[in-house]
Simulated scan of single mutants.
Amino acid sequence: MIAAGLSLGTLAPAHGTDLPDAPGRQQVIESCSQCHSIDLLAQRRSADDWSQIVSQMVGQGAKMTDEQFQTILDYLSTHMTPAKTPPAGKAGQ
C-alpha cells in the first residue's frame, strides 16, 4: 500500500527539531502539527515525496484551502528536502 511507503515515520529526522524560519512555516505548524510532531515534520524528503504526502493527508481529511496547500507544499519542497552535496572535487571551488 502506498501509505506505508509514505509514512512520515520512515526516514530519519533533519538535524534539530526546528523548522526553518521562512514564509510558510507558520502554516505548516498550524496545519500539520494538529496530528504530527515537529520532529516528524522536520524530516527531509524530495519535493515529489512532499507533494504525495500532503496530497495524501488532504485525502485523509486534513482541512486546508488550495492556497494553504500550495503554501505548505512550497515550504516543505523548498526547505525540507535533502541537502545537496557538491560533486567530488568541486567543494570549495
Score class of each variant (00 low, 15 high):
S46G: 14
S55M: 04
I72V: 15
M57V: 04
L11P: 03
W50Y: 05
A88D: 12
G61L: 02
L40N: 01
L73V: 12
Q56Y: 09
D49Q: 14
L8Y: 08
M57Y: 01
G16N: 12
V28I: 01
D49T: 05
A12Q: 13
Q52C: 02
S55E: 13
M57A: 14
T65P: 10
L19G: 00
S37Y: 02
A62W: 05
P87Q: 07
T85A: 13
T17R: 09
Q52R: 14
D39P: 15
S37K: 10
I38M: 13
Q34K: 15
P23D: 03
P87V: 03
A14V: 05
A47S: 15
G5S: 06
V28R: 00
K84N: 06
G9H: 11
I72M: 10
F69N: 04
L73I: 01
S7N: 11
M57L: 13
I38A: 09
H36I: 07
G89S: 08
T65K: 11
A91Y: 04
G61N: 00
C35P: 03
I53C: 03
Q52Y: 04
Q43T: 15
S46C: 08
T10S: 10
S31D: 06
Q68H: 01
T71V: 14
G9V: 07
P86V: 02
Q70I: 03
S51I: 05
A42R: 15
P23N: 02
D18T: 13
I38L: 15
C32T: 02
S37E: 12
S55I: 01
T10H: 11
Y75M: 01
H36G: 10
I38C: 00
Y75R: 03
Q93R: 14
D18S: 14
